[in-house]
Design a protein around this nucleic acid. Structure first.
Length: 489
RNA sequence: GCUCCCGUGGUGUAGUCCGGCCAAUCAUCCCAGCCUUUCGAGCUGGUCACCCGGGUUCAAAUCCCGGCGGGAGCACCA
């Protein structure tokens, strides 16, 4: 082969083995992290970072941390400490170690104090606006070059309560002449008297992310850091801290913004919506949370495939529900048994035969071995079909898996069982017999479809099924009535 | 305004570093046909892209210059 047609072998190697590009600078194992703020459950946007980290750690071997970034006591929803690990677990993301930043305040204080001693930071008691204004004009404030002993006195006063919030902060020096105003001196610690959900009022000096993140990324000895490109400037700021201590920087990879059409992803807006009754809970099908996806019967594998195929470029992207649902349909179709559900039912009385008819509808067209659902229709019995199927005023219809019928007002007359009528343009519709049971489907716009389902659907509790010609749904409960949640078409 | 980043079909991506094998890959959407007792699945076919303008070169999606467009940041949030 090599001798006859070597070019064929070369071509072969051009194909990618993995959709995700290789990481730069990998030596042995890899150490990565995700850094959620425990302010609520994870949503579809968060899942990108989680999946990508997990994929790489699995590819190269190594460890993945979950680090709760809870250094702003005012922006914590304590439920996040439980829901986030559950969401990650559902996604199939393997967390090797969990780190909680609110356990580590003393560590941040230590390092900050060292920066002070090194002359790389200062205690600033300027008014916030005045300080920012000076910075924007590349000017130092009066506190920047104060002698160390004076700085230490003021440092202590931050902790003992002498200063109120906003009256003092620790600022890390960078380069006041830096052309990018976003990179010049940045605040590293501040005072806040809001009680922290985990540490109460024990601490009042809180690190800001650029300090705590730099310290933890270093202490955890991370090799690669994945983050949104909104952190580009933060990365530059953090590099100053790395350089002051001579720490080795991890590889930083920034990925672009994801805009998700038709989805509420703002944690605070979702929380408000729940409070106001707009949404029932975090797993309301209207929301873009992972909890909602799970409830609707979306498989985490579909979400993982979506992010792997999307990759990790710095360009901004538009998320496509259609594509995600296509991936999901591929996963669930084989396992989803078929049932009839008639939305907006119209009642007909069946006639035209002497004996009872029995429909034997397969649970799955590709899996005859799963058997059939039997539905019986006797002369004089009722049959319901969807009002929507009457739109074009058909005179004849085919009741799927049962027989052909002629429609006359509210009567349905048996018209044989010859499938060839389909060639004449007769449409096949789904239907339910007189002993159908009420069922409702919770839609993603918050509305509910109330209809009738074949009785056997009540045996499909907890499974994802296809309501033929309607949609895939997850059967959430079966008593007192059947309730399903819309998955997708 | 300042700083940085980025521009391949509707969407996401491959190719860009080291110019030719790219009249541009794959997936998804969309359209048409076939098949099927679902509007699901399957099969076949189709439409649609290198932001623009110069330059270098035998040759440019790929290199250079200039435009234009988009995004992020300029918080005592993360």
């Amino acid at each position: 082969m090599e001798e006859v047609a070597p070019e064929l072998l070369v071509r072969e190697s051009k194909h990618r083995d993995n959709t995700l590009p290789d990481l730069k600078g990998v030596v042995g194992e890899v150490r990565m992290r995700m850094a959620p703020n425990p302010s609520g459950p994870l949503h579809i946007g968060h899942s990108r970072m989680a999946v990508l980290n997990d994929e790489y750690v699995k590819r190269y071997g190594g460890i993945c941390y979950n680090r709760f970034e809870d250094t702003d006591p005012a922006r914590i929803d304590p439920s996040g400490y439980d829901t986030i690990p559950a969401d990650l677990d559902w996604l199939g993301v393997k967390i090797h170690k969990t780190v909680i930043q609110s356990d580590r305040f003393e560590i941040y204080y230590d390092i900050a104090k060292k920066l002070l001693e090194m002359g790389k930071a200062y205690v600033c008691t300027c008014k916030i606006d005045a300080w920012r204004d000076l910075k924007n004009h590349k000017k130092a404030c009066e506190h920047r070059e104060q002698p160390l002993d004076e700085q230490m006195v003021r440092w202590d006063k931050m902790f003992d309560g002498s200063y109120k919030p906003e009256e003092a902060s620790i600022v890390v020096k960078t380069d006041l002449q830096h052309p990018n105003p976003a990179i010049r001196d940045f605040v590293a610690l501040r005072i806040d008297d809001t009680p922290h959900p985990r540490t109460g009022s024990k601490y009042r000096v809180y690190p800001l992310m650029n300090l705590s993140v730099a310290i933890d990324d270093h202490l955890l000895d991370l090799t690669h850091v994945l983050r949104g490109k909104d952190h580009l400037n933060n990365t530059h700021r953090q590099e100053y801290i790395y350089d002051y201590f001579g720490w080795k920087r991890p590889e930083y990879i920034h990925y672009g913004r994801v805009s998700v059409e038709d989805a509420q992803l703002s944690t605070s807006k979702m929380a408000n919506g729940i409070k106001e009754g707009l949404y029932t809970s975090w797993d309301d099908p209207q929301l873009g949370t992972l909890a909602s996806m799970r409830r609707r019967g979306v498989r985490s594998e579909a979400i993982r495939r979506y992010w792997v195929e999307t990759g990790i470029k710095e360009v901004d992207i538009e998320f496509s529900w259609k594509t995600l649902f296509t991936f999901n349909r591929e996963l669930i179709d084989d396992g989803a048994n078929r049932y009839f559900f008639v939305n907006d039912p119209i009642r007909f009385t069946f006639s035209g035969t002497d004996s009872e008819l029995v429909a034997k509808a397969p649970f799955h067209p590709e899996h005859p071995e799963r058997g059939t659902r039997e539905m019986r229709v006797a002369p004089g019995a009722h049959v319901f079909i969807d009002r929507n199927d009457l739109k074009d005023s058909p005179t004849r219809l085919r009741l799927k898996d049962l027989c052909n019928v002629e429609l006359k007002e509210d009567r349905m007359i048996y018209a044989g069982n010859d499938l060839s009528v389909l060639k004449e343009g007769v449409h096949i519709v789904h239907w339910v017999p007189g002993n159908a049971v009420p069922a409702e489907v919770l839609m993603t716009d918050g509305s509910t479809k109330n209809g009738l389902a074949e009785p056997l659907l009540s045996k499909a509790h907890e499974s994802v099924v296809q309501l033929e010609r309607f949609a895939f749904v997850r059967v959430e409960s079966v008593s007192p009535t059947i309730r399903c949640v819309f998955t997708h078409k």
